[in-house]
Design a binder for these strands. Structure first.
Lengths: 353, 353
DNA sequence: CGCGTTTACGTCGTTCGTAACGATA
DNA sequence: TATCGTTACGAACGACGTAAACGCG
């Protein structure tokens, strides 16, 4: 049994049992894979695949079990490679972030720009997904980091790091009667207008829906969109009053008036969720740190590598972080004192415990 | 990076950084290991070992991390091999059981005899250990099954299966005044005599000690021994009254009189603890089943392979199991209907999902 | 007849063991 | 001087890719 054989097995399984396709993906030839699989079956003493004629029809029951453990072997082997890349200070690589549109559009740009500045050779893959698909995708190994927000409940399925708190804002055309108010409208004032908000508000358990129900008021959604820009567009058209994340409004929206949302709409928290049982590259942690400069970088690393889950501080509010941000440049340099080994052969000495 | 390289790394670490010793253990030559480690270091890009002159001085910090993941890789790879051995119905192998002396001497013999009857080619290693060392040894991968007893608390550190309940008995010489009683003595009656019991009763938190403290009585231990036979010997000599597990008394002790222990001494439960995250050979489960025939064999396998922890039934009392035991021969045959694949090349067909 | 798998074969790289060398206590 | 790690070398094995054969739709 070799790592190569297991890699081929997984590749074939992930290619719909098409050996030729799998061969391309692992940069090898089809007869090579064929032979290695045969060799593995011979060593284990039973068939991994059920064949009809010469083509693979299905995994056998035992084959499916082996596949599961093969994935774990390769995962751990990958951990060693990642560890090594970190250790030798390799600055190239790829980073896949799975998140919602709002975060991708309004929260991440600044952080990703910072990462690209610190690690120019890292390819960042931003992978927008529906709210419900994010954590499964992280668990499935499709992403290195998930950025997700929730009101109240702590997300499950990984190492969870609170990044910042945020509130919703009410967005009205300047001409609208609500735009004349100086402070947050009440739930009742809000409830008399048709609203425009995120598609996720449609869901039965959404915090917007819950807040209205708790106040004994009807929630009238004129329309929903996945995208804050779309919401703004339709607010401008007079379709309704916008209710959206404060991160999504900026100086360019001067034709609209943003008011604080009623207190009854609870604060939300944006979290980073990191995969358990998988070593992350340094730049993945750097991304989290760029999003939450209030966290100690060493706490972060300990939370990921060790199993100690520190008691995270109550995260700051988004509106305060905008003010903090320029200062965060300084502590980045302060954190770079970690010793790095150069790669050269003669330079490998001295890398002691 | 190959599985061989990782195996060599672990072997060297487990041999106190003595490559020559490690080479012997993995059935290879010393230069072979030396070269493979060097190759691995080259691929990873940093030193795994700190060398002084030509001898290995210590693991580097990064090397220690790699070692940890290497163990996990090898563990998962071992799982595949174990899985395969089960799948192809290999009946040879070894089974290491770590347990206390009492269980090894009075509980396991019957079960191990049954295993050896069903799997004659399995070498059973019985590994007696002190109570506190058992679970660490299991966690360290030194054993396949731990058999351990406790009063009340459920053991931690693996998949826990309750086997049977048992009570303590009071053992007195026939001539002793306690021997004239027809029923269990009270705690007060017991407390006036010096007692002879297990060494573990010495510990502050032992259930014997707790029971006496709770009754407001003094526990006078004339002596303690690790071994029920020793306890009996000294009871015969009149050193004191024996308090020991009911499993340890049998027909041969007709010169002694065994009474039920006071109700204040709580019942104990003997548990099997199986390692998490490790596939076990069929005969390891067969051992557990032989010890607890009341458990469904399929529940057992599901508890081990799946992560579903079934709600185990309240285990029977040891004294009732002795009566049940002859009947347990029948259901063993009933459980052997599982299909096995022969090993031959042509016979590998038909092994479908 | 095209697609995909298997078989056959030649080449290349790697591993392994033996033997000699070097360093260290 | 004994022990242990490294280097050197030759033999054998194994992996890989090319090319051809085989089944199946």
């Amino acid at each position: 049994m070799t790592l190569t054989q297991l890699r081929y097995l997984v590749a074939i399984a992930d290619s719909g049992l098409n050996i030729t396709l799998a061969a391309g993906r692992v940069h090898a030839t089809q007869p090579g894979l064929s032979k290695q699989i045969k060799r593995l079956e011979e060593e284990l003493g039973f068939l991994l695949f059920a064949r009809r004629g010469r083509s693979l029809q299905a995994l056998t029951a035992a084959g499916a079990q082996v596949l599961g453990y093969a994935r774990r072997v390769l995962n751990e082997a990958g951990n060693i490679r990642t560890l090594a890349a970190n250790q030798r200070g390799d600055r190239r690589g790829r980073l896949t972030v799975v998140t919602t549109h709002t975060q991708a559009r309004h929260v991440l740009p600044h952080a990703i720009a910072a990462i690209k500045r610190e690690f120019p050779e890292v390819t960042v893959h931003l992978h927008p997904a529906d709210e419900g698909d994010i954590l499964p995708q992280l668990a499935g190994g499709d992403a290195d980091v998930a950025i997700i927000s929730s009101s109240g409940a702590v997300p499950e399925g990984g190492i969870v790091v609170p990044l910042f708190r945020w509130s919703r804002v009410v967005l009205a055309p300047r001409a609208h009667q609500l735009a004349l108010k100086k402070s947050a409208p009440s739930m009742r004032e809000l409830s008399v207008h048709p609203l425009v908000s995120y598609a996720s508000s449609q869901r039965p358990g959404s915090s917007l829906r819950r807040a209205f129900a708790q106040a004994g008021l009807d929630l009238r959604l004129a329309m929903t969109a996945i995208d804050a820009d779309l919401i703004k567009t339709y607010v401008r058209e007079g379709v309704g009053i916008g209710v959206l994340a404060e991160m999504a409004v900026n100086g360019e929206d001067s034709d609209l008036r943003a008011l604080p949302a009623p207190d009854a709409l609870p604060e939300c928290i944006t979290w980073a969720v990191l995969p358990r049982e998988r070593v992350l590259r340094d730049y993945a942690l750097a991304l989290v740190h760029a999003l939450a400069p209030q966290l100690d970088r060493h706490d972060l690393r300990r939370a990921v590598s060790g199993n100690a889950q520190p008691q995270w501080p109550n995260p700051p509010h988004w509106s305060n972080m905008q003010r903090l941000r320029p200062a965060s440049q300084a502590d980045r340099a302060a954190c770079e004192g970690e010793t790095r080994m150069p790669i050269g052969k003669s330079a490998m000495e001295g890398c002691l415990v």
